[in-house]
Design a protein around this nucleic acid. Structure first.
Lengths: 133, 133
DNA sequence: ATGAAATAGGACTTCAATAGTCGTATTTGA
DNA sequence: TCAAATACGACTATTGAAGTCCTATTTCAT
């Protein structure tokens, strides 16, 4: 509960890695070996980060990945959003259609949870990759 | 990901309910009916809240639950801790033995995640049930 | 040209956590 | 002594997370 997924962790580690090497091109193999991350899992994460325009891919031999933006313009929130592909919501009504929640109609904690949600977003958005390097 | 469990939500709703009735004794049936919460699930949550000394049980006919502390002395963090029975940790290394994590040794994001973790705890600890009533 | 190194991405399996159900025992007020 | 309430263990179903496997495509270097 309230745990980041491994995918998000892997994404953060990978982006930090590239940033720490001054945006030098890095491969999935290099990163997955160095940090003991399953190769195929990291590969998929990198593909998502590419589609989300946080990193850029360079295909073919001698290819790999570089950052698509400066490290101080990539937040933990960005990585979460791109890797998970959905909005973070601490309750169902913040991440999908509110009516889906079985208790939505009589729920008395929507507003306070909304406040908490807002604060959490701020925490994740204000931590930039540049602080992690 | 990063979602509160239904149990925690139910616990918050129940505690808020009791607080909003000026700590009048309330039953599981009354609460589960009013908020459309499965009876047995709520019952178990109430038992945990009792063991965690956030509420007090009154057994037997005419029994039910009352708060064990004033509403401004119960935080969302308290409810999470008692209902989940474990520490909240946004990464494995914060909620269980760090060595269990497959990437612990080479992990480069422990410190920044620790900072985020600390901020999250603050967010949850500073929201009191008295603000929800 | 061709082969090796790299990204792209779909399909599948495994495992653990969440959510809910069922059954029974115990307590206590009227 | 019965009904209304809490106490609690055992079970099932569903979902999501994590990882594996396989194949296609791109591109550099020889």
């Amino acid at each position: 509960m309230l745990k980041l997924s491994k995918k998000v962790e892997y994404g953060l580690i990978a982006i930090r890695h590239i940033a720490s090497l001054n945006n030098q091109i890095s491969t999935v193999k290099e990163i997955s070996d160095k940090y003991n991350i399953p190769n195929e899992v990291l590969a998929k994460v990198m593909q998502k980060l590419t589609r989300g325009k946080l990193i850029m891919s360079h295909q073919g031999a001698m290819g790999g990945y570089t950052l698509a933006r400066s490290a101080n313009d990539i937040s933990v929130m960005d990585v979460i959003g791109v890797v998970e592909g959905t909005q973070v919501g601490i309750a169902q009504c913040f991440s999908e259609a509110p009516e889906n929640c079985s208790i939505y109609l009589n729920c008395t904690i929507k507003n306070p949870l909304g406040k908490i949600q807002h604060n959490l977003e701020h925490v994740f958005a204000s931590m930039k990759v540049s602080e992690i390097v």
